[in-house]
């Protein structure tokens, strides 16, 4: 056990955990409402979309790739699903299926293009971001969908607890989505052979091919999974927003990337954990929420977020430099 805690402290996740804990302690002392149940529920709900996407993007980053197009995939998925839901009498299962199919299709297109064009994944997905988003805006003329089916607007809420003042505390669709995305991703990465193959692919692509990993097939799965998660996240977001706007999501892709990277995933592949990603999302969420509760004008929140990202990636890089110097000493 002491061994485990020591390892945790030396890992990126351990240090990040300390930072997050320090932030939580500070904010709960400095503000009344930060640690309240209602605030936590609000946070979970409003960060469900980026949190889910972070889980999907984590898988792509571990495999050594990157996806920029997922916000466009999500926009397409929710628009298609809600348009159909408004036209025909369909229910939750159908809507979920449609979002899944659209998201996965977008992901597979990415994987096929990356596998065949000889362009890096960042370039391909920047291009497909524009294609998906441009076509969506072209077809929809940028019109929002305000009227959603009643069953969808009402969503899935369970009142789990009512306090003395009669305020209900609810467990909602957004939380289910968020938890499901993290659990599913954790299972995929740590409990399956596919997960190990994804780490192996990101760690050394040539070696992965040599030991017999089918790289193209694995990439289909990785980007398909990212698309699937984007589809699910889009549904959760549409339910929360109570409307669908084709240009509401595009532009948020780099925020999600920032959260995953803060969580310790490496852009060169092979490194990253679900726990770290959760901490990365939490850090950004608590920071933005905390600034608001502390009474800092919301205009300044982005500036603080940027500073935290810059400090965090610099600290990570310095740590790596020190480690490399350490290895050199050992070898000498």
């Amino acid at each position: 056990m002491p061994d485990l805690s020591k390892r945790l402290l030396h890992s990126h996740e351990g240090k990040l955990l300390l930072v997050v804990l320090a932030l939580v302690i500070f904010l709960s002392l400095a503000t009344k409402s930060f640690l309240s149940l209602q605030n936590m529920i609000d946070l979970l709900t409003s960060y469900s979309f980026s949190g889910m996407l972070a889980a999907g993007l984590l898988v792509v980053l571990i495999s050594g790739g990157i996806d920029i197009s997922f916000t466009a995939s999500a926009s397409v998925a929710q628009y298609v699903a809600m348009t159909i839901a408004n036209q025909y009498h369909i229910g939750w299962i159908e809507v979920i299926l449609i979002c899944a199919v659209v998201g996965i299709a977008c992901g597979l297109i990415n994987a096929v293009l990356i596998g065949t064009l000889g362009l890096s994944s960042i370039i391909v997905t920047i291009a497909t971001l524009n294609v998906f988003f441009g076509l969506l805006m072209f077809v929809t003329h940028g019109n929002e969908i305000f009227a959603l089916p009643d069953w969808f607007v009402n969503g899935a809420n369970w009142v789990v607890y009512t306090d003395k003042q009669g305020n209900p505390y609810i467990f909602n669709l957004q939380m289910i989505g968020l938890i499901a995305a993290f659990v599913l991703t954790a299972l995929l990465l740590t409990r399956t052979n596919i997960g190990r193959q994804i780490y192996a692919l990101g760690s050394n692509k040539d070696a992965a091919q040599r030991v017999g990993i089918k790289v193209f097939r694995l990439n289909l799965l990785v980007y398909g999974y990212m698309g699937f998660v984007a589809g699910m996240a889009s549904l959760v977001q549409a339910q929360d927003a109570q409307s669908v706007s084709p240009n509401a999501l595009v532009g948020r892709e780099l925020d999600v990337l920032a959260a995953v990277v803060l969580g310790g995933a490496s852009l060169t592949g092979g490194v990253g954990t679900v726990f770290g990603t959760i901490l990365g999302v939490m850090l950004l969420a608590f920071l933005q929420n905390g600034l608001l509760l502390l009474g800092v004008q919301s205009y300044w929140s982005e500036c603080f977020t940027g500073a935290v990202i810059l400090i965090a990636v610099s600290a990570l890089a310095l740590e790596r430099q020190r480690q490399r110097a350490g290895v050199r000493r050992v070898m000498a």
Binding site: Y199, A200, G202, S203, D206, A207, A208, G270
Partner: peptide
């Protein structure tokens, strides 16, 4: 092979 074709981010056992 000369480059050994190993996975640097996985453990020895893996």
């Amino acid at each position: 092979y000369q480059d050994l074709s190993l996975f640097p981010d996985l453990t020895v056992a893996e």
